[in-house]
């Protein structure tokens, strides 16, 4: 489903590469943690997968699409296969919960009838069916992240990227979000979670890829968070 072949990414011509000759393969339906310190190259990896950046060398293949050969005009369609959630939620503060989730469908021209059917379903999945009218600023951090998850999933993408999804949440809400991600994975979505949360990584016993200074230093099934 996701393959990186000898991928390197440098932001400057002479500087240290953010990613250095990274190769990995993630199968369809997997749940993978990507862990590492700040500046280790995790965010660069996410940006490469989203085709916000192009690798300096190497190949990235997602869902059979070679990203180095992807034309600019095809990028939007490609991104519809990837749902994303972030540490800072990135919700639209001037709109309510329903509108935030519907937004993801509106911008890809989904018919209104379908939107009216899909959005309540997604809000039920993330446990917020009764909050559809609430403004996002009235919600707790955990609830905001659930809305972000509903928005990421409403277009039914086969892959979900979560960049520090629990970074702004207390332990209880962090666990709830992780359980939700596990449930989403159980339903068939491939889930990649970039995190610093040692407790969660160690408790969930999933595949853990550890990145350090742009290099994969460990890749273990049912792995643990490795300290420096």
């Amino acid at each position: 489903m996701i393959t990186l072949e000898n991928v390197s990414k440098s932001y400057t011509n002479d500087g240290t590469p953010a990613l250095n000759n990274v190769s990995l393969h993630i199968n369809k339906g997997e749940f993978v943690f990507i862990v590492g310190d700040s500046g280790s190259g995790k965010s660069t990896m996410i940006k490469l997968l989203l085709r916000e950046l192009v690798p300096s060398s190497g190949r990235i293949i997602v869902n059979g699409v070679d990203l180095s050969k992807l034309r600019r005009g095809k990028i939007p369609k490609y991104r519809r296969n990837i749902g994303c959630v972030f540490q800072d939620f990135r919700l639209l503060k001037d709109r309510n919960v329903y509108e935030n989730v519907a937004f993801a469908q509106r911008v890809i021209q989904t018919p209104t009838k379908k939107i009216k059917k899909n959005v309540p379903q997604m809000l039920s999945l993330v446990g917020l069916p009764e909050k559809y009218k609430s403004k996002t600023k009235e919600l707790s951090g955990g609830e905001q992240q659930r809305v972000a998850l509903a928005r990421a999933l409403v277009n039914n993408p086969p892959i979900l990227l979560a960049d520090e999804p629990t970074g702004n949440l207390d332990p209880r809400n962090s666990w709830e979000i992780m359980k939700l991600l596990e449930e989403i994975n159980r339903r068939g979505t491939t889930v990649l979670v970039v995190t610093h949360n040692r407790e969660i990584v160690n408790a969930m016993r999933k595949r853990v890829i550890t990145v350090k200074k742009g290099v994969i230093v460990s890749d273990e099934e049912k792995g643990e968070y490795i300290d420096d």
Binding site: L50, P76, Y78, Q109
Partner: peptide
Amino acid sequence: HEEIGIMKLIGATDFVV
């Protein structure tokens, strides 16, 4: 700026953005 960023990530085309 933020809304445009989200639209791009979700897969909105140039036309829609």
